[in-house]
Nucleic acid binder design. Structure first.
Lengths: 192, 192
DNA sequence: CGCCACCCACTTACTTATTGGTAAGTAACC
DNA sequence: GGTTACTTACCAATAAGTAAGTGGGTGGCG
């Protein structure tokens, strides 16, 4: 008895895995979990992703591609530093509201020493993509006089990235108010 | 054949467990790892900490007590906001330099949904202790005109805490320069 | 002072559950 | 008829945890 044939099992697997991943970390779920949710045997997951590391890399790569597309759309459709900043914050807010997820970078960094090498490299790529966008946004924002900070925009970008990453995490034990408070105060620090 | 009797096995276990914990997370080590490092059988660890959750809670509680003692010493011995701030940053710097560890709060938050309930409560206690100290330090610093921020000191405290937590994490994939850059820019943002 | 029983800090030996992963078979579809 | 997408049936490794045994040190008793 074979199950009904699906066309997009691979992306369904990624969807389910991603939910577990952002909630419980890479080491916090197994092929069994995904298989059960999908109504399939765990060997079927191995058919699409032979080793768990393959799944992990696919997860991170998909996240990066998604962010790059988001960045392109945002840059094209949203003008002004603060609207863009708010759109960026909204990404993290969505993680938080959708079942206390974390941002992928935060999870990848936390588990860094226990994930396969390929995932570590992919993690680096994701972090870099995010920081590059933030750097561009901050540079343009300062040139337009919308935002104020000293030093290189690269440095301010890491501060913003690190703060949001930390804020979603702290919100797990202190509640989502902690996240909003952090964002509000971060904005105040950046206002000219 | 029994091994040579130790007097402080319990704290030796905690020391070894803490190193694994801050490097690889709570789910990233087992009683086997600790036992091997200590030169003992894993059942011996169960003798001191019946369940892994007991070890976990002990780890977090010890961290909290350690921080409270640090805070008391710091408040007594170090005067001025920026020296205190630097002393606080030094804690995170030590994590980073001592084998790419993370700060405990960051790990606890990342694994929040996969750790025992008792650990979650202990995590809340640790985070609260840290933020309370930061809040007091920032309030006093602003009253003395040494530091500048808008709104409640509680909010600024979460920003500082979240930023440092995020910064140690990002440093794992981007290198420790990323941490120092973040701290430098955070200081600039807080300078009057 | 000597002896002995007890207890502490383990070891040995085990269980059950879960993990990632593999090999071979099978049904549906092109 | 072959490829695709699975299932069935395994595997060895590792996890947390338990029960019973053991040996050395110590306190108390005569």
């Amino acid at each position: 008895m074979t199950a009904t044939r699906r066309s997009d099992t691979k992306s369904e697997i990624l969807d389910i895995a991603e939910r577990y991943w952002l909630r419980q970390g890479y080491n916090g779920f197994s092929y069994q979990h995904i298989a059960q949710d999908l109504g399939v045997k765990s060997a079927a997951i191995h058919y699409h992703f032979p080793a768990k590391g393959d799944l992990g890399v696919a997860l991170v790569e998909r996240m990066r591609r998604r962010f790059v597309r988001w960045a392109e759309r945002t840059d094209a459709e949203i003008v002004g530093f603060w609207p863009r900043f708010d759109a960026f914050v909204a990404i993290y807010e969505a993680y938080l509201d959708d079942g206390k997820k974390l941002c992928p970078s935060g999870i990848l960094d936390a588990e860094y020493h226990t994930i396969p090498e390929g995932m570590q490299e992919a993690a680096h790529g994701l972090t870099t993509a995010i920081l590059r966008w933030l750097t561009r946004a901050l540079r343009a924002g300062r040139e337009a006089g919308e935002v104020s900070f000293n030093g290189e925009p690269e440095g301010a970008a890491i501060v913003v990235g690190a703060t949001l990453q930390g804020a979603v995490q702290i919100a797990r034990s202190l509640g989502r108010d902690a996240f909003h408070t952090t964002v509000e105060h971060l904005k105040k620090l950046l206002h000219p």
